[in-house]
Nucleic acid binder design. Structure first.
Lengths: 228, 228
DNA sequence: TCAATTTTTTAGATGAGACTAAATTTATTT
DNA sequence: AAATAAATTTAGTCTCATCTAAAAAATTGA
């Protein structure tokens, strides 16, 4: 296994970084500690492998862990996770803005690039991209100090009839969802008005660019909106 | 260990790619097959580890190997090595041209970036950089088909008195050597004239930018020159 | 040539990170 | 409060890539 020093002088493997990132993402949904099974699901691995890794992370004080009680990131673990997320999102901007990738093509490559260890590279890339605040999916990009804005945004599915808003992000960044959005010309920055909400299945009739479009709950529950 | 498919559908680990690259570089000096010890020296590892890896590479038909007789790359191994070298040199250009790195700062980062698996990324990066022919150290960059020019270049140490030439590359890309060159304002493109050669220690008095400079054989034997 | 030296390979061990199967703990029902 | 189910951990095994120590092959040289 290959290791490099990060800016705090500690070393994390590819696998450790991926676990830290996964725990960070899951902490939003699991406030009392991320469960082993949830982490196994997120990491596409087995619960026993997760337990192994959690112990290693715990030994390095990257997480707080008590048997059977799930994990939480320590402050060191959180910094490390944010650093990886910062790199991931910066690279996504690079791929889209500079290399002409579509927003549905960047995830897999950014998953690799996020592990490159060079503080200078990260910061120079940030500067080259003119310090972007959000990635191509509308997610906030942490700055060099790890700070980032927690967006004031709602899900389209939570809007009422006749409310309007600007599309500012996607919750699901899968290729399939993003390609659906492309096909229906839904992109960040578009203004959307809710015309009708169907109680039965939560589907919606929306207006966008002067056209009407019917969308299911699966769509509206994955689109972030800034209400206007 | 993490694997990804490359463009030929095969999968190579980080370590395998590094060995292939090392063998490729050493094949210039070891025509009859690269020795285990030479490879161990290049890879900064033990001979026994090299033997292990050579067997793995041989099982995958990336090298031709017979016990005690050194290794040679197979054509598949050579393609894989060239692909890694292509990526390494493209990233070096990116770091210098776009992110403002100095030529002595790029190697370590490019060593990481060269392993990113995405044919689209490599080719789009190539396009973004406007298909550079050489990296910041003057080494040729293979194109998408793996072709690259074998330069018509000599070492400065081989020039005779009064011969002139353009500096087109460095043989040693170490930070120390590159910083020496920076300090003495020697860079690619500079015209150099050999004024005097000292037989005893092979040191040279050269003229560059109208100034005279005394350099040792260690310097002149690591500068590539295109004679004029 | 044949003994000494060098090079290379084998044998056995290790650590990281994954796995399966079994055991244990916690949670849920009746 | 048992009984059952679900979640989690332990125990043991596997592969990759490394290591050390020892054996074997190749090379060198008196």
């Amino acid at each position: 296994m290959y290791f490099w020093a990060n800016k705090t002088g500690f070393m994390f493997s590819l696998s450790e970084e991926n676990y830290l990132k996964a725990i960070f993402h899951l902490e939003n949904s699991y406030k009392g500690g991320v469960s082993t099974n949830a982490l196994a699901e997120e990491m596409q691995t087995k619960a026993s492998s997760v337990t192994d890794m959690i112990k290693r992370l715990s030994d390095k004080d990257l997480v707080n862990y008590k048997k059977y009680q799930g994990v939480k990131l320590s402050s060191a673990g959180k910094s490390a996770a944010i650093e990886v997320i910062r790199k991931h999102r910066l690279w996504e901007v690079f791929l889209v803005e500079k290399l002409g990738f579509n927003w549905d093509e960047v995830h897999e490559v950014a998953e690799q690039l996020e592990h490159i260890k060079s503080e200078k590279l990260t910061n120079e890339l940030d500067k080259f991209l003119e310090f972007p605040k959000r990635d191509p999916h509308g997610d906030p990009i942490p700055d060099a100090q790890g700070n980032f804005s927690v967006a004031n945004r709602a899900l389209l599915s939570d809007l009422e009839e006749q409310q309007t808003g600007i599309c500012v992000g996607v919750k699901d960044s899968s290729t399939e969802f993003l390609q659906y959005l492309d096909k229906n010309q839904i992109s960040l920055g578009k203004e959307i008005r809710v015309l009708e909400k169907e109680e039965f299945d939560q589907s919606m009739l929306i207006e966008m660019d002067g056209n009407e479009l019917m969308i299911s709950n699966l769509i509206s529950a994955n689109l972030f909106i800034k209400t206007t």
